[in-house]
Each structure stands twice: as structure tokens, then as C-alpha cells.
Simulated scan of single mutants.
Amino acid sequence: MRPTPQVADWLLDSDPSIRWQVLRDLLDAPEPQWSIERDRVATEGWGARLLSHQDPDGQWARGAFFPADLTRELYEAEGQPWTATAWSLAQLREFGLPPDSEPARRTVELVGANARWDHDGQPYWEGEVEECINGRTVADGAYFGVDVSPIVERILGERMADGGWNCERERGSTRSSFDSTINVLEGLLEYESAGHGTPATRLARESGEEYLLRRGLFRRLTTGEPADADYLAAHYPTRWRYDVLRALDHFRAASRLTGTPPDDRLSDAIDLLRARQSDDDTWPLDGTPRGRVWFSIEETGRPSRWITLRAARVLRWWDEKS
């Protein structure tokens, strides 16, 4: 589906991080046109604002996963904060900060030199031990031009028997989770998109996708009921959390990269997405993760440009198959 002229104008009357993706994914603008908007992410709007909070050593909040000043009392009162380096890098990737821009190149170098994971002081671009964290680190590293192949090899060895991943594996979990799996899948797809895919990474990605497809993206295998009510809602930013729209957008991106058609087992998830569309042809923001942020992006319960962009491009891709 293409957005109506009114919705297209509304989407374009926004931040560069949204405008360039609307031009590319919904309006079929030529690359010279949308790349101009993408370049503005470094100097205008949310991208520039997030970069302005960067520490001199390239980190954010002086920490890799958690801010350096985080206390247990603050965590219990506010929830997990989203201001540290890992979350800021992932947000810049989603905004579309050009990897060859000066701020991106500088950030990659400084983070590599100065950031260490909270777990055991591991160098940032070597990853740590948790699959969710390493999946996102692969996505960020591959996007920004870092060699993250050692992390990828680790992830491949941590795939579970049912095809996906679970960051609780080291604590005894024997089954994959929706949340961990989508984080790893996005990392493997970004790695593949950067031209580093191998038969082993593609096989792992496809097995993780099959884990989700067998469940219709949101159902329990045992009962067919939704595994979690939150999976049916649309969130932004998603951070580490899973939802149906996030998964659908992954399958769209994978299909575009590989040239494979949409899988019919996505149809129930597509129906859910259509049902959430408002009468004005937009989609609302159902929620954002609790916790400290550098700044708010959109208001919960209101029409969301981020959700509308992602939903519209998913439906456009899906409808092209018929």
C-alpha cells in the first residue's frame, strides 16, 4: 500500500530519520533524493540531538550497557535506563545515521578504544556473553563497518535445538524466546546485508525465522494462544523487546534482501496489523519501554509516524505478492 497524500505529507513533516525512509520505502524516490534526507540525520533532529549527548570518549552516559552512575535504587524506581552506549548506537542505526559520516566513523573508533562491557570488561566490539546483547552488537557493528565476525561465530554456536536463541541459556533455559531470537535475527540480517553472510549465517537466520513462523509470530505452540499480550501491541523504540510489527519488518527486510516471497504463515500477523490501523490511515504508538531516556520521541496513545512508516511498508511488501 502507498500512503494517502494526507498521510504522506504528515510523515514527511517530521524528522529526517523518518523522512528518508518514507521517501525510499513508501514513495519510491530516487536514491539521490532520499540520501540527502538521510545525510541530515547527523546534523538535524533526533540524530543530532542524540549525538550531542555523547561523551568525549565516544560513549554515552559513560557506560556500555548501563550508565556509569546507575544505582540499584534508581533502577528499581525508574526501570532499566536507555541512555548508555549500546542503546544509543542502536538508536542511531535505526535513525539511519550514514555509516560513512564523520560522526559515525569517529564514534566507531572511540567506542572501540574506550568502551568496555559491564559483564567482565570485554572490549565493546568483541561482544559479551548474552545473546540479546551480542545480536544487537552484531547489527550495530555490521551497519557501521566493524568486523564483528567473532561475535557472529559465537552466536552460531549458541543456537538452540528449536532453532532460535535465549539469553537465559546460561541460566538453564532449554527453549528459545521470541525476544532473544528477534535480536539475533536482526543482527544476522544486518551482517548479511553488509556483504558478510555465509552459508552458516544464512542457515542460522533461516532457522530462527522458522522458529517464529511456526508460531505465527505470536502464538504458543502448545495452545495456539498469544504467548504474550504485549507482542500484539506496537512499540517504539522496541529496545530488546519483541512485538509482531518488529518481526514483520524483519521478514520484509529479509525478503527484500534475498528476493524470497512472503511466507503465507505471516497472514495472521498481517491481519492483526491491519486491524490496528486507525480510521485516518495511521497507526498509534501503544507504548515505549519504561526507563530513563535522553529525550522522548513520540507520545504513547497518539498517531505515530514511526509505527505508521513501519506498518505501511510491511503492508506494501505483503500486498505486492498478490
Rank of each mutant, 00 (worst) to 15 (best):
W240V: 15
P103V: 14
L257T: 05
L189W: 00
S267A: 15
A77F: 07
L51N: 08
D140I: 12
D279W: 05
T198P: 06
V152I: 05
R106D: 11
A275G: 00
A200V: 04
M1W: 04
R316D: 09
T83Y: 08
D118M: 12
Q277E: 05
E131F: 07
E225N: 10
A254Q: 03
D286L: 01
V152H: 00
A233C: 08
V7P: 00
A139E: 12
N134T: 13
E153H: 14
R38V: 01
A200S: 11
R93C: 11
G121R: 12
D13F: 03
G208D: 02
G79T: 12
R171F: 14
D179E: 13
A254R: 15
A253W: 02
G58C: 12
A234L: 15
T107F: 09
R116I: 13
L11G: 00
T260I: 11
E158M: 15
D69I: 11
A233M: 12
V138L: 04
L217K: 02
E192S: 15
R290T: 13
E298H: 06
S35C: 05
L266W: 00
G63E: 06
G96F: 09
P99K: 11
T198L: 11
G141H: 01
P5M: 06
E299V: 14
I182P: 01
R265I: 02
R2M: 07
D57S: 12
R219E: 13
W283S: 00
D162I: 06
G259I: 03
L221Y: 03
A115R: 09
P99C: 10
N166A: 10
V314G: 01
P16F: 10
L315T: 06
P226C: 11
D100M: 09
P284W: 00
S176K: 07
G145T: 08
A104L: 12
G197A: 13
S88F: 06
T223S: 15
L257I: 03
L189N: 03
A84Q: 07
L51P: 07
E206I: 00
F144W: 06
R93E: 11
V146G: 02
L273Y: 03
V152M: 04
R154N: 10
D179N: 14
R171D: 09
F178K: 07
A142C: 05
T107C: 13
R290Q: 15
D280T: 02
S278N: 10
H196D: 09
T71L: 12
G127Q: 01
R62S: 13
E158N: 08
E192D: 14
H196L: 13
E128M: 13
P150L: 09
P3D: 03
F65V: 05
W34Y: 14
T223Q: 07
G259R: 02
Y211L: 06
T282K: 01
A204C: 14
W125M: 09
R313N: 03
A113N: 10
E128T: 15
G121L: 10
D9V: 07
A312L: 15
S296K: 15
R246V: 10
S101T: 07
P284F: 00
D249C: 14
G141Q: 01
P237A: 12
L189T: 03
R205Q: 12
Y143Q: 02
R215G: 08
E209H: 11
E31H: 01
V22F: 00
L156M: 11
V293G: 02
R169S: 08
A227V: 12
P5R: 06
D118R: 14
Q91R: 14
S149Q: 14
R40V: 03
L92D: 02
P123G: 11
T71P: 12
A115W: 09
D268R: 10
R239Q: 13
D147T: 06
